[in-house]
Simulated scan of single mutants.
Amino acid sequence: MKYKAFLFDMNGTMIDDMPYHIQAWHRILNELGAGISIERMKEECYGKNDELLERIFPGRFSPEEKKKMSWEKEKQYQDSFRPHLRLLDGLAEVLAKAKKDGIKMAIGSAAIMFNIDFVVDELQIRKYFDALISADEVRISKPDPETFLVCAEKLGVAPENCLVFEDSPKGVEAAARAGMDCAVITSLHEKEDFDGISNIVRFMKDYTAFSW
């Protein structure tokens, strides 16, 4: 196998939590008068929280206000999702085997570290990862390739030797721009949503059939 590192997006890729993020944002933004549908919210739910707020309400909120709303949203998300928090089927086995085989692993997510810590510590999987890259560690989030390039740099692995696991078209685009292959988890999007992206090596609903 040519891959020396596995890079995981987190939300929707390791855990099936994207509906909880979408619902939390949908509630908060519509209370502020956004008037957007769940389908529109699904499309907008990518990147850093302040980037999302700026797309919906350009120029309306100060950095301090956006930070406060971001924390409120994350607390709502964690409270609602905690009872359902678990790894996607087969992922625990993949993490254990990859660690045993000497494959380096990192999480590269647009989530803030508060949420990454929530997931890796609640699930007790921190031991598997050599790097955790959050929104706080990059200037521009996906589809910019910076997140995955920083992961590769931290692991000391060339981009072409990294396999990315993603669930969103924006994330897969980021992997492609980083020069990395990608395995797509179809937890939120259908195969058709990824038309025209050439770095995809496989689609899978979870990790039960993934092997190397």
Rank of each mutant, 00 (worst) to 15 (best):
N49G: 15
L52H: 11
L52Y: 09
L53W: 09
F57D: 01
R60H: 07
R60K: 09
F61G: 06
S62L: 08
S62M: 09
E64N: 07
E65Y: 02
E65R: 02
K66M: 06
K66T: 12
K67D: 14
K67Y: 07
M69N: 03
M69D: 05
S70A: 14
S70V: 11
S70L: 06
W71D: 15
W71V: 15
E72Q: 13
E72N: 02
E74S: 13
Y77D: 11
S80Y: 14
S80H: 15
F81T: 01
F81R: 00
R82A: 15
R82S: 12
P83H: 10
H84P: 03
H84T: 02
L85I: 01
L88R: 01
L91N: 02
A92Q: 10
V94L: 04
V94P: 01
A96P: 10
A98N: 09
K99M: 13
K100F: 12
K100P: 12
D101K: 07
I103Y: 05
I103G: 12
M105C: 04
M105Y: 03
M105E: 03
A106K: 10
I107S: 10
S109Q: 07
S109W: 06
S109F: 14
A111S: 13
I112G: 15
I116C: 04
I116K: 08
I116E: 01
D117Q: 12
D117V: 02
D117H: 13
F118I: 11
F118M: 14
V120H: 00
I125T: 03
K127E: 08
Y128M: 00
F129A: 07
D130P: 07
D130H: 08
L132E: 01
I133D: 05
S134F: 03
S134N: 07
S134E: 11
A135E: 06
A135R: 05
E137G: 13
V138Q: 09
R139L: 14
K142D: 07
P143Q: 10
D144T: 02
P145G: 06
T147V: 09
F148K: 02
F148S: 03
V150K: 08
V150Y: 13
C151P: 02
C151F: 05
C151R: 03
A152W: 01
E153Y: 08
K154W: 13
G156N: 02
V157N: 14
A158F: 05
P159A: 07
E160K: 11
E160T: 14
N161E: 15
V164F: 08
F165L: 05
P169V: 11
K170P: 15
G171K: 03
V172L: 10
V172G: 01
E173P: 05
A174R: 00
A174N: 04
A176F: 10
G179Q: 03
M180E: 05
D181E: 04
D181A: 15
V184M: 00
V184D: 01
I185V: 06
I185N: 05
I185M: 14
S187E: 09
S187Q: 04
L188V: 09
H189F: 13
H189C: 05
E190T: 04
E190L: 13
K191G: 10
E192T: 15
D193S: 05
D193V: 08
D193K: 09
F194R: 06
D195G: 13
D195L: 12
G196Q: 03
I197Q: 04
